[in-house]
Each structure stands twice: as C-alpha cells, then as structure tokens.
Amino acid sequence: MLTGKQKRYLRSQAHHLKPIFQIGKAGINDNLIIQVKEALEKRELIKVSILQNNFEDKNDVAREIAQKSESELVQLIGHTIVLYKESSENKQIELP
C-alpha cells in the first residue's frame, strides 16, 4: 500500500508519460493483463487510457486492472489510469 507522499511523488513522475495501453469496448481481457504486467516489470510506472467507447464505469475498470495486474492504482484522472508496481529486476524508481 502506498502512502500519500509516495502517490504524490509517483504522480509527478507519471505526468510526462503517454498512455501505452488503451481499453476499448472489448474491455479487459487476459492478453491485456499479461501485457500490462510485462510493461510494469519493465517500466514500473505506466499510464492506461480508457476510450470513450468503453461503457463500463471507469472506477471499476481502474480497480479491476490494478487488481488483476497485481499493481497499485496511483491515480485515475479523467479517462487515464496511472499504475505502479515495483520491479524485481529493473528497479528504477526510488520511493520517498
């Protein structure tokens, strides 16, 4: 579980990032989760965009993708999700 200070730090680090995944009308599937896990292992901090044609509640989508990818939900702002998971091999981010 991340503290408020750690979340603020991660939000500042994620500000310049572009979303690398998009969730559309197909929703969340196993392939997407596998790719998100691999990206988190490589980068530790990623953004995921929820497209307009996804009619599920964005809060539910954010919680589900964080839970299934075993990551921390840093922020949900608009239709953009910020996820963090500490990498076991490629540790780059040092949390305060």
Score class of each variant (00 low, 15 high):
1 M>W: 03
2 L>E: 07
2 L>K: 07
2 L>S: 08
3 T>R: 09
6 Q>M: 12
6 Q>H: 03
7 K>F: 02
7 K>A: 08
9 Y>F: 15
9 Y>L: 08
9 Y>C: 02
10 L>V: 06
10 L>Q: 05
13 Q>H: 06
15 H>K: 09
15 H>M: 03
16 H>W: 02
17 L>I: 02
18 K>D: 12
18 K>Q: 13
19 P>Y: 04
19 P>L: 07
20 I>H: 02
21 F>E: 10
22 Q>T: 13
23 I>R: 00
23 I>P: 00
24 G>I: 01
24 G>R: 01
24 G>P: 05
25 K>C: 05
25 K>V: 04
26 A>C: 03
27 G>T: 04
28 I>T: 10
29 N>G: 12
29 N>S: 09
30 D>G: 14
30 D>E: 15
30 D>I: 09
33 I>G: 13
34 I>C: 05
35 Q>Y: 09
36 V>W: 09
39 A>Q: 15
39 A>M: 14
40 L>H: 08
40 L>A: 12
42 K>V: 05
42 K>R: 15
44 E>T: 10
44 E>L: 10
44 E>W: 10
45 L>E: 01
46 I>V: 06
47 K>F: 00
50 I>K: 06
52 Q>Y: 06
52 Q>S: 13
52 Q>P: 06
54 N>Q: 01
54 N>D: 00
55 F>G: 00
55 F>S: 11
56 E>L: 12
56 E>K: 13
56 E>S: 14
56 E>P: 00
58 K>C: 04
60 D>A: 08
60 D>Y: 04
60 D>S: 11
63 R>G: 00
63 R>Q: 09
63 R>K: 12
64 E>T: 12
64 E>H: 02
65 I>N: 01
65 I>M: 03
66 A>K: 01
66 A>Q: 03
67 Q>L: 12
68 K>P: 01
69 S>C: 08
70 E>H: 13
71 S>I: 06
72 E>D: 15
72 E>H: 15
73 L>Q: 07
77 I>H: 07
78 G>R: 07
79 H>N: 15
80 T>F: 01
81 I>M: 08
82 V>C: 10
82 V>I: 15
83 L>P: 09
83 L>M: 08
85 K>I: 07
87 S>N: 12
88 S>K: 14
88 S>I: 13
89 E>F: 14
90 N>Q: 12
90 N>D: 11
91 K>G: 01
91 K>P: 02
91 K>N: 11
92 Q>S: 14
92 Q>D: 08
93 I>E: 06
94 E>I: 14
94 E>F: 09
94 E>T: 14
95 L>Y: 03
95 L>A: 06
95 L>S: 03
96 P>R: 05
96 P>T: 02
